[in-house]
């Protein structure tokens, strides 16, 4: 019972904090005029700088509108929506599972437009969750660490390399802490679902003293510095965005399969500006899926899969299946297995 008191206390504290600020934003920025007629409040897990050009492009056609952009973690975003749904208009998140759960549990608003109908069906769930990017889960390599070795192209190559050269890679492998990072958890569970080799690879990682990270930024930097030889399941889009590190990192999209995360936007149920929020979503979708595109779009535009190709890119399926790994018991079980694989002493 002693342990039960702590979460209760924390919840009470956070509720108290919520009444003041609602949530802990990592960053907040106002786009557009200070004195605007309408203000859209956007919750997002995406780096402000990454989306800024696209948002400013939107405001260029909406002079009387401003955007308040709150950057925060995916779990915080979920919490902010559930505890204080009324304050915000749009939620943008890389955590597809949480976005789907928000829509499933009724926190989102339906939106239909020409763009939502023209976009690929697999990127649109129920006209509630709209994927507007395809971002691969990649392996970031340090070129120096792989000197003299043939660069791996598939996971099997990587496992072979690690087995042959344990001394070179020991302590120099990084990945997300699946327990701490929503995106890391999503990628790990999708890996586990897709390939039986996942657990074997995790065990090899664990035997080589795997280092766990909360966020992609530090992981990419550590690879660039040479502290890490490789970082597994890092968003390629983040590595590409770090133009300052070009040449110091190699981005590998595994050829056996590459999970594609869809960054997605939802319109929140209690928005006061459903029309305007819909326009902003359409703006994102147009940049992502229309043939014309938008020069301000920060993500790589991959060809739209049409099912017949056997390309290694596998967009993660939006739908109720994503909620399976959010199940309390399932998550406990998965993390237990994951920990036992990656933490070997």
């Amino acid at each position: 019972m002693r342990f039960a008191i702590l979460p209760t206390l924390l919840t009470a504290l956070s509720l108290w904090a919520a009444s003041l600020l609602a949530f802990e934003a990592e960053a907040q920025r106002r786009f557009g005029p200070l004195e605007a007629e309408t203000v859209l409040k956007v919750l997002s897990t995406t780096d402000t700088a990454l989306l800024a050009p696209l948002l400013e492009d939107f405001l260029a056609t909406h002079p009387q509108t401003a955007l308040d952009y709150y950057e925060l973690g995916s779990a915080d975003l979920m919490q902010a929506v559930i505890t204080d749904a009324s304050g915000f208009d749009i939620a943008i998140s890389s955590a597809m599972d949480l976005q789907v759960k928000l829509a499933n549990d009724g926190y989102t608003l339906r939106h239909r437009s020409n763009l939502t109908q023209a976009m690929p069906g697999w990127a649109n769930w129920r006209d509630h969750v709209f994927g507007f990017s395809q971002e691969p889960a990649t392996v970031i390599l340090s070129p120096r660490a792989f000197e003299g070795l043939e660069l791996p192209r598939r996971r099997q190559d990587l496992i072979t390399l690690l087995r042959r050269h344990p001394e070179r890679f020991s302590g120099r492998i990084g990945t997300y802490d699946a327990a701490a990072s929503g995106l890391g958890y999503l990628f790990a569970t999708q890996d586990a679902r897709t390939s039986d080799g996942f657990w074997r690879m995790m065990e090899i990682f664990g035997s080589l003293d795997l280092r766990l990270y909360c966020c992609s930024g530090t992981m990419i930097e550590d690879v660039a510095r040479g502290d890490l030889a490789l970082a597994y399941n890092v968003l390629g889009s983040y590595a590409e965005a770090r133009s300052d590190l070009s040449g110091q990192v190699l981005i590998l999209e595994p050829q056996d399969y590459t999970n594609m995360m869809l960054r997605s936007a939802v319109i929140l149920r209690d928005t006061a500006e459903p029309g305007l929020a819909g326009e902003l979503v359409d703006h994102l979708l147009e940049a992502a899926w229309s043939p014309e595109g938008n020069p301000a779009y920060p993500f790589h535009r991959y060809p739209v899969r049409n099912g017949a190709e056997s390309a290694p890119y596998r967009p993660i399926q939006m739908g109720p299946g994503l909620m399976v790994y959010l199940d309390r018991l399932k998550r406990q079980r998965f993390l237990r297995e994951w920990h036992s694989a990656v933490e070997q002493d």
Partner: peptide, 22 residues
């Protein structure tokens, strides 16, 4: 008593319609 929900248990419902699942 514990259970390990199969991925297909919920995704099969997503295959027949885009409806919400509880």
């Amino acid at each position: 008593v514990t259970l390990d929900i199969p991925y297909a248990a919920l995704s099969m419902l997503g295959n027949i319609s885009d409806d919400r699942v509880f």
